[in-house]
Design a protein around this nucleic acid. Sequence first.
DNA 1: GCATTTTTGCAATATTGTTGCAAAAATATA
DNA 2: TATATTTTTGCAACAATATTGCAAAAATGC
Lengths: 144, 144
Amino acid sequence: MEIPPINMSEYNDLLKKNGLSVTESRKKILDLFFESDGALAHADIEKNTDAAFDRVTVYRTLQTFVEKGIIHQIPTTDNSVLYALCKHNCEQGHHHDNHVHFICTHCDKTFCLDDVTVPEVKLPAGFSPSQKAMVVTGFCKECR
Amino acid sequence: MEIPPINMSEYNDLLKKNGLSVTESRKKILDLFFESDGALAHADIEKNTDAAFDRVTVYRTLQTFVEKGIIHQIPTTDNSVLYALCKHNCEQGHHHDNHVHFICTHCDKTFCLDDVTVPEVKLPAGFSPSQKAMVVTGFCKECR
DNA sequence: GCATTTTTGCAATATTGTTGCAAAAATATA
DNA sequence: TATATTTTTGCAACAATATTGCAAAAATGC
Ligand SMILES: [Mn+2]
Ligand SMILES: [Mn+2]
Ligand SMILES: [Zn+2]
Ligand SMILES: [Zn+2]
């Protein structure tokens, strides 16, 4: 017997709150993020949905979620982008994710270190920062 | 009359020092980096060489330069990777680039802030960091 | 339930990245 | 300088990733 997803009505609310229609693909992709302990790449989502949804739908869903402030992007050095849930009060076009990200080079998991704030840096005169990201690589607590 | 590239013999030396054959493509791509005030993406290099070299050659050259510690990669959030010259004493497989990068959201230039060191952060117990990168976005000194 | 709006899937196309291999170029050797 | 050896390049074929227009399907609002 299947264990039904716990938070389906939460997902409804989250989507509604952001002015989005509630659809199968959006609920499923949201669920993947809530059930995952790390960040997800586009490819991960395709795998985990068993190709139930068109690639294009996945691209558009991720883009929509980023725009709405439901997920945020994590920069990487390998021509890919990772996505993770926004934990705090991110909004349409205005993210507040200023935590450090940790990518394990052994198990490839990515962790949002929600309690580790990206430190301030003093920039040379003339530079006006708006966002800052910090990505740390190494061995995670499982892999060291 | 053309002004000849100033540093051609420097380029020779740099390549030789790294055990690389001196070829037209490598000299030209090196020159692009030295003449550029910012970081370059693969696409930039293709444009600026007027397709004189095969795409594959550009890919391989960038990869080789990274391996040798001549250039370093800058993570981005848009499915691309930026490359910039290593200013310090980077070596084969061991980079020492720990400076902050600034990407201007207006002119799209990327700056290596060589004098701004990526600050230390205290990670949760169990995480062993090996590398850390910091990317700041905003308006650069020209665009603010 | 029905009209309207939004989202999806498909197809076509574009862009980006990889691999094997023979020709060409660069380097080492004499 | 000529020749042997090593390295690099370009091509072709292919694979993977991403974007767009548009009609069908689904979701929403009434
Ligand atoms: Mn995060
Ligand atoms: Mn740099
Ligand atoms: Zn790990
Ligand atoms: Zn600028």
